[in-house]
Each structure stands twice: as structure tokens, then as C-alpha cells.
Nucleic acid binder design. Sequence first.
RNA 1: GGGCCGUUAGCUCAGUGGUAGAGCACCGGCCUUUUAAGCCGGGUGUCGCUGGUUCGAGCCCAGCACGGCUCACCA
Length: 510
Amino acid sequence: MSPNEDPKTPTPPPAGPDEEKTSDQELARAEKLRKLQAAGVDPFPHKIEWTHSASGILSQHGGRTKEELEASPVLVRVPGRILSVRQMGRATFFHISDGRARLQVYIREDALGREAYERFSLFDIGDWVAAEGRLFRTRTGELTVQASSLQFVAKCHKPLPEKWHGLQDVEIRYRRRYLDLIMNPETAEVFRLRSALTARLRRFFDERGYVEVETPMMQAMPGGALARPFVTHHNALDIDLYLRVAPELYLKRLLVGGLERVYEINRSFRNEGIDAEHNPEFTMLEFYQAYSDYNDMMELTEELLGGLVRDLLGKDEFSYGDQVISMKRPWPRLRFREALERYGGLDAAAFEDRSAVVRLGETLAPDKKPLTYGRALDVIFDRRVKHHLAQPTFLINPPKEVSPLAKAALDAPDEAARFELFISGMELANAFSELTDPVEQRLRFEQQAEEKAKGDDESHPIDLDYVQALEYGLPPTGGEGIGIDRLAMLLGNRRNIREVILFPLLRPRE
RNA sequence: GGGCCGUUAGCUCAGUGGUAGAGCACCGGCCUUUUAAGCCGGGUGUCGCUGGUUCGAGCCCAGCACGGCUCACCA
């Protein structure tokens, strides 16, 4: 606030970025706030006293009958935002919300007093109030607060979206998520579910002796995944830094250091396209367990996700779009090569014909040249196979070539000891028996560098500092990453990742 | 990046080349158990932006901006 402004004079708030002028409805609201203040109401109270929340009242007292409420009155003082008003002369009903549930409040002139009752005309839909009174049931049976007093809590200077259709415009829902949360209770529910999800994940790992850690998001060398990074600059050191594409290499350094079980739930950043399954910043759970391999990780994953679904949804099956996903164990393990033969139209002979595989890959993804044999197999999988994997399926042993941080499979030197978990055609998890041999790791990095030289901008950089860490000895380790946003999509039955990210990246306005 | 669709009142949406519309919200009036309350009265607008065609454009054309769906790439 500038020093010349009188703090006692409410003015219309500055017009938002979308409006150059203040609408008639905003002027009317500002005038009401002025009148409230003239009547001695503090327009910006520091705090308010309250005894109950709206949703708390409904869950605690929702079962009380009219007679019970009359015999033993329940007194409450409940804050909330006004969402609808039905005014009938000397009596008024309105609903307030705490973001979870709507509670009706009843005021009447003879109970509230004429002055206080008339003051309600200065309250608008969207304003925050606190109602004090006793609970009763209306003629139609709705649990309602009969208010003996009303306190003004905060003004809503702008009109809310329409009460019946609500807020539909997805752009406004994402840009001004607060409006979405006010108008669409199911939005708030999804984010509560997401919160319960991460809490449940943390409990799972904490109970098993994992240490939760945080590793650098700004890295001098972005590793741990094959993806294009964001670049930024540190002024004092005068160096370019990359936003991490994965925490993997740092987490494995911690296992070298003797932390046998670690996990991290945090953001990674990939400078790639945006669509229904991709946001440039996304949340990943990564966890590493010493003395284990990728088979152990499959067991653990079934236990983790199976338990999660049972705890959060209360059953082993759930709907996702028009599919019903069953989490009943065990989940099938499908060899990558077998998947390509079954769904990708590649028989054993075609699989061995490396140049034919590359040609098919290039036909399917003409933008993605040059393709190596491994990358071509990956393309064919993405285009032809992935969408068949609706029920939880471990896709095991993909080509070693596209898995530079994984051990080779024990029985197949060209395959990686790795799995990806698919549910509803979405890649949800990615895990492997971590490559622990520093000499082999260095070799794999060098192979990646060769591909980069051939024009592959998603190859893994040579990280000699990481190789040095391996030289001190990494025990056999199973490691896994799980996409939390996608998991939230599944559990919340949302088809777009933006529905589970509070503030997804959008192009800035103007 | 390509294709398709969209952008009109605070919100949800109609709108056929000829004066800009509805419901909700809002403003004024009536109404003491309503609940999409009801009844009477009031339209509050840079039709996304910039050009063009036309006597005349919300509508037709071009370009641009933003968004959605989709295809391609990445988790």
C-alpha cells in the first residue's frame, strides 16, 4: 500500500489482467464493502473464532433428527464462503462451503435483529462469513444453522461463475485454479486424493526402512534418463546448469555411500512436448534398494500399488475411462520381444533382421531419424504394442541399447534386466537391476556419445563423476521410478495430466 | 510442428449478411422453512485481435493470438 492511501477507504481492487475496466458487478461489490465499513465492520479482520467446519458439521451431526436437535441443541460457529442465496423478505437461506461440503444457513429478521438482518444485503455470493447459531432441520429435512449472529470475514470483489453450469472453461480452470476449486468440488477431491496418495507412498517406504532424501534439481550434467533438459544459468559461478531430468544418478551415489534404501518424491523437468500425459515438470517417485534386482522390484511394485489402490479406493478394481482395471496379483510379465511378436507383427525372423526393423521404425516415426536397432524396436513398441497393455503388465527385458544404466539380463546379453509397468496403455513405472560395473558403465556412456554424434539428441551424456562413484563400489541394487502424476490420473480417473497438477504449464497470457 | 474445432454479457450458451439475444448472476420492488425458491421491472457488450469483401459483417475471406481434441516426440 502506498503511504498516501487511507487504509480506512476500501477502493475497488485493481482490474485483473483480463479486464481494463471494472464491471458493474465489481463496482456494486466495492460499494457494499464501503457500506459495511461505514457500519463499523472490519473489512480485513486479522483472525476469526470458529468451532466447526461446514464439512465437519455435516459428518458429525448429519445423522441427528429434528427431535434430537431440539432436545439437545448443538451450538456452532462456522466459517465458509457463500455460494448461493435464497432471499425471501424477512428470512433468507444461503449455503456456505469450506471447500469440501455445503452447509445451509438460515437467517430471519426477528432472530437476528433488524439491523444485522438488513446488513446481509451487503453480503454477496462469494463472500466469506462466519455464522453462529444452533443446528436444526428445515421442513424439507436439510441440516441447517439457524444463525443468531453473522460475522463478515472477507469480501469477494468479483462475481463467481454461474451456479448451475459452474465453471467449464478448461483454460480458466487451469489458469485460475482457485475458481475451479471453489466451483467444482470434484476438483478439490482429486487433489486431496493425490495428497493421500503421496502420504501413503511415504508411509510404505518409511515403514520399510527407506530414507527419504532430496537430491539436486539443478545439475551441471543432466543424467538418469534419455530426455532433453531445460538450461539455466548461475551468475556467481558463471556456469550453465540443467534442471534435472531424473534424480537417478544422485540416488545411486547415496547407495555407494551406504544408505541402503533411499527414496525421493520430487519434481523432474523435461523439455519436451505437452499433451494429455506429459507436463514439462512432473513428479516422480524414485526408490533404490541395495542387495536386490528387478525381480524384487516387481514384487515390491505389486505390493506397493496393490496396497495403495486397496487403501485409497477400498477395492482391488477401479474404473478408468471405459476400462475396468484389476490390480489382482500377480501381474503378467511380458517379455519385450514377445510383446512385439504378439502385437507388433514381428515374428522371430523379422526380429533378427536388424535393417528391416530399423526401416519399419523409420516408417512409423519418420521424424525420428536416425534410428538404431534398439530405438526402432522402441518406436514399434510405442506405436503398435503399448495401447494393448490395459491391465497391469510388467513389460520385461527391453533392448539393452536403450537402457544404458541397467545390467544386461542374465540369460540374454542383448536385453536389459529392466521392466516397465503399463496400466491402461500408460507407462507408469520403470525399473532395473542397476548397472554396477564402472568399466561397463563407462563403455555404455561412450556408446551413447556415439549415438549423439550420429544426431540423437536424447542420448545419455558421459558422466565421469558418476563412473567414479561406481568405482568405490555400488552393491547390487534394484531401482525404480514411478510417475506420480500418472498414478494420480489412474486413481482419480482423469484422462488428462493437467487434471492432477494444480498449476499445469500454459502459455502466459499476453 | 501438422490436421480438425472453438473464442459473443461476470458465468453457461443461442445467434439465418440488415437495430446484440436467453438462462443464471447483477440492480430496483414484493415475499419469515427456501434450496436451479418464486413474482414484477431493468441489458450491464471492444461479438479474441488486425485487415479485407460488401451499401451494410458477430456471421463471408485472409492473417495473427490463445485454447481444446488429435497425430508425431518424451514419463
